[in-house]
Design a protein around this nucleic acid. Sequence first.
DNA 1: AGCCATTTAGTACTTTAGTATGAATATCAA
DNA 2: TTGATATTCATACTAAAGTACTAAATGGCT
Lengths: 138, 138
Amino acid sequence: MKKIVFIFSSLTVALLVLFQLSMYFYTTGELSIEIMMAIIALVFLGIGIYLNKKSLHKLPTTLTKVNLKKVDELGISKREYEVLIEVSKGLSNKEIAEKLFVTESTIKTHVSNVLVKLDSKRRTQAIQKAKELQILSS
Amino acid sequence: MKKIVFIFSSLTVALLVLFQLSMYFYTTGELSIEIMMAIIALVFLGIGIYLNKKSLHKLPTTLTKVNLKKVDELGISKREYEVLIEVSKGLSNKEIAEKLFVTESTIKTHVSNVLVKLDSKRRTQAIQKAKELQILSS
DNA sequence: AGCCATTTAGTACTTTAGTATGAATATCAA
DNA sequence: TTGATATTCATACTAAAGTACTAAATGGCT
């Protein structure tokens, strides 16, 4: 939101400056009206390209950025989410258990809970869904 | 290349039309010079955004493109690759079997072969590795 | 202190996944 | 036609994953 305000403020200022410059040169007879228009056209063409580049470059970053709010909305706890991440890395329950210093039985409980919360029947399906929901990166 | 010629031709035409219109309204006194400039600014802002959207929308498709050469290098057959894709979607062996009109036992064979070729012990690990090797998208 | 969600862990069980092996077709190039 | 490879399927097995409970300990919140 703040960025949008900033961008539009800058645009307005740029427009005003161009107007003033145009008027000055026009009244002094140093510049024809066609050239003024051409300058304005070019400047705003550039602004359009710049703005779009900014907005489109956000898409890849937002796609890889995880949505932690959704994790909460789905009722997935901190520990469950931790386990989900390890699952997505391709680790087995046993490996995850060793990595997180708990028993395999605990991991099974967590995974089972995550499956319910992600409405999945298998861990592979859960990974897929989690990535669709942008809970997991890439 | 043809597109670029077309785009620049269109741009030139648009510029000329705007100039003529501006001049007409200016001489008839129906439009102030500020409004003319504003219109030109907006039109070219839009053109800039449009042009950029066109050129940047090509990038994501190339980024998500899978490396089919690597599939071959790893010795993964066409059918095995097909199965791998379904595995990555989160389907069970049974579901894949039904989808590809073969028995579950066949899918097990394919999956087992893929696991060896991707040096993995589990299907989740295979999915992870396949994505690292850009064999599977995103 | 009492409540609630989280984390942990267990048992017993069913289901799915994966391995090993053998074997019958099919396909395709030499 | 004859190999080589791919695809299919089966059996028998082991391993891993997942379900359905129960339950204790923890920590934050009011």
